[in-house]
Design a protein around this nucleic acid. Structure first.
Lengths: 210, 210
DNA sequence: ACCTGAACACCGTTCAAGT
DNA sequence: ACCTGAACACCGTTCAAGT
């Protein structure tokens, strides 16, 4: 993904957004392990210590990066759709947003594992679920379940993308070459299947209550 | 959890198991961020470089730690039970195993995010699901969904345990004190609910096919 | 408001050499 | 078979001081 930033305007002072933008660029091009404060600083032609004027620490920075990734998810118009389609569409939009940056899911996953990022993702899933008017506790638990599945699945997908691109020989039980395209179709199917399981389960739950 | 190791037998040479044991002890007492190679080495009264005779690198070590945590899950007798109870019991046993070590879920999550640990967890869930004789692709996708939900939920639980113990003020929307006990009941309920959603969804799926 | 310079207290990993 | 010693190439973070 090309972060359409206005050109850094050589040797200017920086803002929070500049820093996040540069972090996203490093992330997408070199991956999470290479996203260090020192490297980020040198990208911005600044001392590492300068970053701590903008962010309290690296965790906070990564939370901001997570928010940026999630906020890139396309907006879904829920005007006419039932809760099930709404949730499915949100899940797919969020998956695409995570996939659009290298290691995107892992960044968001680890931020949210620390209780920081991913707030917007939960909000969006919750809003979609809200169209189903479930009990509030059910709604919360369901949103969490969708989010956990989502982050786990996509981060697994991206790990395999990474392994593939490095030519790692996992030597699975495959007979056919299993090219990249059919692989990615399988991933998508398996993702949609998981989402469908959760939706079907929720539907049973709501039927039981009426 | 008290790892019932035979006492280190002062200033003996070490084996892989010793190293993993010591790692588990550090993990449980001080948490994942404090589980460094250098600290582990000094716990074993050994130079950091010595660890690299036992393990290729830190990732490999952490994968072994993950395996140990998961293998602590109690064995379920599936003799009489249907697939749904089998899966539910497995999920609960795995959750308990993860909860029995500080940061247990996060260790396993990050190992499996790198494609290393958690193999046994997948195997156990798959075996339980196998009693339902689903299509093979369905079985695989479902096992993955359960695992993702499981790891995500428990690591979230443990993050909150951590935050609570540090007295972090998250200032949620609570009216009541919400003591530790009721909190942990809620967590368990929300976990069981997620598992139930997935099971119900699968049941619908299997009904549709017969 | 934003950054420099310099330092502190660490990391994971490699490798020749020892016993 | 298992470990030492010493080094390499890094980390995140703090803080006084500069403009």
């Amino acid at each position: 993904m090309t972060t359409n930033a206005s050109p850094p305007a050589k040797s200017q002072r920086h803002s929070r957004v500049d820093v996040v933008e540069a972090a996203l660029a490093i992330l997408d091009e070199y991956g999470l392990p290479d996203l260090t404060m020192r490297r980020l600083a040198s990208t911005l032609a600044v001392q590492p210590s300068a970053l701590y004027w903008h962010f309290e620490n690296k965790q906070t920075l990564l939370a901001a990066v997570s928010d940026r990734i999630v906020s890139g998810a396309r907006v879904i118009d829920h005007g006419t759709s039932d809760w099930a389609s709404a949730v499915r569409l949100e899940a797919e939009a969020l998956r695409d947003a995570l996939l659009s940056f290298r290691d995107g899911a892992e960044v968001v996953l680890s931020s949210q594992a620390l209780g920081l990022g991913a707030g917007e993702a939960l909000t969006r899933l919750t809003a979609a679920l809200h169209r189903g008017d479930f009990d509030e506790r059910v709604e919360r638990a369901a949103a969490g379940a969708f989010l956990h599945f989502l982050l786990g699945h996509v981060s697994h997908e991206q790990q395999r993308i990474q392994a593939d691109s490095l030519g790692v020989v996992t030597a699975r039980h495959e007979a056919k070459p299993s090219d990249v395209e059919s692989r990615s179709r399988q991933e998508r199917d398996s993702f949609d299947f998981g989402v469908a399981l959760l939706i079907a389960g929720l539907a049973v739950q709501s039927d039981a209550l009426r």
